[in-house]
Write a protein that binds this DNA or RNA. Structure first.
Lengths: 354, 354
DNA sequence: CTGAAAGCGCTAACAT
DNA sequence: ATGTTAGCGCTTTCAG
């Protein structure tokens, strides 16, 4: 007699009058005499049997779970990644473990090492920064990892990165074409991956356009609406002649817009504003923000796919670490171009309910 | 000699020259002779041993994983919930499994049933709608569940809900106090939990204020920026005398603002606009949106805590299902009140990086 | 085609 | 204090 607890293959075996091996076979679609097959299926249904995934994992050596570790789940960029990764994972029959590192380097390293506890089959990691410890931990990773960010060559780990340099160039060129010459740059912390890359992108783009680099037009504080507003307020005092503000992300751009509005500047007439990431915030602003889509969703999707490939049948020789880069895309809206993007026009549908 | 694969307690036992039981005891902090303790710890460190979480789960009967199932991970409201739930879970030593149901009822039911596979110890579910099947599945849930939404009494499952009625009342009263009388209402689908509740809230609030209910001032389509813009464009044709637009969420409100701007209406002078959810979008808009905070984060936090309580030592008699409601909070900004919310003022900090 | 039995890695009796 | 052993639920040889 089977006692309490949920039904197991043993309960089914007893009820069907067969061995547990037969139960397992039938349930896994291996051959069996129709009679046996029938008895087992019936018993399973009657008992409301559901296979214990943990036991399966222990036997099989894999959990069909993927971990995605991000600095901050609230950030729109990471949200876009989560969304895509979750979709890819689900389609491949994997569950998604979401881990917030709270932008803490030690935690990031911990996540990599915790691959060893076999809780998930692989990891997609978005590091806030790449330290020597990262390189070390990643090199010795006890399981498959894909990094979203810029990893040095030589680290034997797949990576998918954004092209901030080209992205910034797109924005700067666009502003220059629109007749702007004194283009301020509002950045976040330069010692983070995104901050550092975007700073380089801005300088490079300026040079490429033959424009001088004026440190007085550049600020770097925090990524955030308030930081953007304060930075621009300061810039407006120091460089009242600026005619455009390029921001390292949309939050900063929102802050910039607010600061400009507060002083009665018209956008884009008096100053154009451009952001980066093309998040939902961009369309929420007024005027709607021109923004560079750095392909967050695309990066997430690719990272997930690469990870899945590593998990597939590891036949043959070891595949070397791959590097791939998502192409940036400029999305022009009213904040830089008077006529652009009428209200309720296109995109942004897809009915996110609430 | 221990062969390939990651180290297990057996490898450690061999190396330390003790039994696997001793290894387990030492590693779990149970008593042992200092000498033994030492040998084990040393061996474990040298081998880089990490306990296999799957094996532990199989033995212990729990995974220390929680599942959070939402209709759409991209929605700011759910993002706020994820953020809090993840924080609570992490603090309690649980991992978070994120599941997107894509607003599909069948998937929601599937998630509830899949509790039976023992992959996670409990579930927080945000149903898009509550059908009789939901009630049935929830009643027969093979594990602890907490629902975020309005569950009928009698369903033996914990639930935490928003108070849309009071929330809508807060907004409507605020608008009335600001001198508005013809308050339009832009809603999403009425057959969803949020849509239905907000519709009731609006009607109730109107009645409480002694204002007539004019169906011509009400629209219900999709939750989304574009839908909001189109709805308001239509409203402006049908009821050009409106002096305020109350929207069932911030996306709709953003759309409303755009439609009004497009026609040259000034906000809030010609028409005030208020939204719901107080998401990041609210501060991104210009003017910043007055919005009703329905306590998404708070609901997430409470749901997680309730679930954790169920998972705790189930000593004594069974605790009956609990219902709790998060109090709404009106956040007044420039879209209804000319002076409010200067740029880069307060909140919104917390430096979400990018 | 089917059953018996081993074993995934760990914990917890039970015995010494 | 430590070792031996059973067993969590399942898959998979290996015999029959």
């Amino acid at each position: 007699m089977s006692s309490g607890g949920p039904p197991t293959i043993v309960s089914i075996a007893e009820r069907a009058g067969v061995s547990i091996a037969s139960v397992s076979r039938v349930l896994n679609g291996l051959g069996a005499r129709p009679e046996t097959e029938d008895r087992v299926r019936r018993a399973a249904t009657e008992l409301g049997y559901v296979p214990n995934a943990v036991a399966r994992s222990l036997k099989g050596g894999h959990t069909r779970q993927l971990t995605f570790a991000v600095p901050d789940i609230g950030n729109p960029v990471y949200v876009a990644m989560v969304r895509e990764i979750q979709a890819v994972a689900k389609a491949a029959g994997y569950r998604l473990l979401l881990h917030s590192t709270d932008a803490d380097v030690a935690e990031e390293l911990g996540v990599v090492r915790s691959l060893a506890d076999r809780t998930s089959d692989g990891l997609v990691l978005v590091p806030i920064r790449i330290t020597p410890e990262h390189v070390e931990a990643l090199t010795a990773a006890p399981g498959p990892v894909v990094v979203i960010g810029s990893l040095p060559d030589g680290v034997p780990v797949d990576a998918v990165q954004a092209d901030s340099v080209t992205g910034a160039a797109l924005a700067v060129h666009h502003l220059v074409q629109a007749g702007r010459r004194r283009i301020a740059f509002v950045n976040g912390p330069v010692d983070t991956v995104p901050g550092g890359n975007r700073a380089r992108g801005y300088r490079g783009a300026l040079a490429a356009c033959g424009l001088p680099y004026d440190p007085g037009l550049v600020t770097a504080t925090d990524f955030g609406v308030g930081a953007g507003a304060r930075a621009v307020a300061r810039l407006l005092d120091a460089r009242p002649g600026l005619d455009a503000v390029f921001c390292a992300n949309d939050q900063l751009a929102i802050g910039a817009v607010q600061a400009l509005h507060a002083r009665g500047w018209r956008i884009p007439e008096d100053a154009a504003v451009a952001g980066m990431d093309d998040s939902d915030l961009a369309v929420a602003a007024w005027p709607p923000l021109t923004s560079v889509d750095l392909g967050a969703g695309e990066r997430g999707r690719r990272a997930a796919r690469m990870l899945l490939e590593r998990l597939g049948p590891g036949d043959g020789e070891p595949v070397p670490a791959r590097r791939t880069t998502a192409a940036p895309r400029l999305v022009v809206r009213g904040s830089t171009s008077p006529g652009a993007a009428p209200a309720g026009s296109d995109e942004q549908e897809g009915a996110r309910s609430a």
